[in-house]
C-alpha cells in the first residue's frame, strides 16, 4: 500500500493507504478526526468540506493520495482550545445549527467564502455560494445570518490585528 503524508491541523501525519482511500476516510478512519462528515455519495451535500492548502474542497471526492504534502485544515483545527474561530462563534450565537451534522462543512465553506469574497457578504451572495452545502434542519435562515455575522467578525479581527 502506498504511503501518504500531509499536514493536518498543523500536525505532520502519514499512513499507508489503499489507492482508493478518500481524503474523508483518511481523516475519519486513520486520523480519527470525525468532525468531517459524509452525507452523500454524489458530491452534493458539503458535509465533508475541509480546506486543502487554504481552499475549500469536498473530502468525499478527493483521494487521500492526491493530498500528498498538502496542508489540510478540518473543523477540529479551527478553534484555539476553547477559544472559537469567529465563524464558529457566529454559528452558535445565531443558532445556525440544529442537529449539527451539516455544520462542520457549513463552517468550513463559510470561511472559504470569506477568504475569497471578503468580509462584507450580502444575503444573496451567501445563498448563492451555499449551492454545494445542504442543510435539512435550519431552512438556511440562521445559517445565512451566522455567515454574515461571522464574516464581519473575521473582518473585525483582521483590523484589530493590523
Amino acid at each position: 500500500m502506498p504511503k501518504v503524508s500531509m499536514t493536518v491541523n498543523g500536525k505532520r501525519v502519514s499512513a499507508d493507504v489503499e489507492g482508493r482511500t478518500l481524503l474523508v476516510q483518511f481523516l475519519r478512519e486513520h486520523q480519527r478526526l470525525t468532525g468531517t462528515h459524509v452525507g452523500c455519495d454524489t458530491s452534493q451535500c458539503g458535509a465533508c468540506v475541509v480546506h486543502v492548502d487554504g481552499r475549500a474542497i469536498k473530502a468525499c471526492t478527493t483521494l487521500a493520495l492526491s493530498c500528498e504534502g498538502a496542508n489540510v485544515t478540518t473543523i477540529e483545527g479551527l478553534a484555539n482550545g476553547t477559544e472559537l474561530h469567529p465563524m464558529q462563534a457566529a454559528f452558535r450565537t445565531h443558532h445556525g445549527l440544529q442537529c449539527g451534522f451539516c455544520t462542520p462543512g457549513m463552517i468550513m465553506a463559510a470561511i472559504d467564502m470569506v477568504n475569497r469574497l471578503g468580509y462584507d457578504l450580502s444575503e444573496e451572495t451567501i445563498r448563492h455560494e451555499l449551492e454545494g452545502n445542504i442543510c435539512r434542519c435550519t431552512g438556511y435562515h440562521n445559517i445565512v445570518k451566522a455567515i454574515q455575522a461571522g464574516a464581519a467578525a473575521m473582518g473585525g479581527m483582521k483590523v484589530a490585528a493590523e
Binding site: 475519519r28 478526526l33 470525525t34 468532525g35 468531517t36 462528515h37 459524509v38 478540518t74 473543523i75 477540529e76 479551527l78 478553534a79 476553547t82 472559537l84 464558529q88 454559528f91 452558535r92 450565537t93 443558532h95 445549527l97 449539527g100 451534522f101 455544520t103 462542520p104 463552517i107
Partner: peptide, 19 residues
C-alpha cells in the same frame, strides 16, 4: 439562551453513530 450542545458540534466533537 445559546445552545449548550453547540460547542461540540461547531468544533467537530459531536458523537454520531458513525463516529
Amino acid at each position: 439562551v445559546e445552545r449548550k450542545e453547540d460547542f461540540r458540534f461547531i468544533t467537530g466533537k459531536g458523537n454520531y453513530t458513525d463516529d
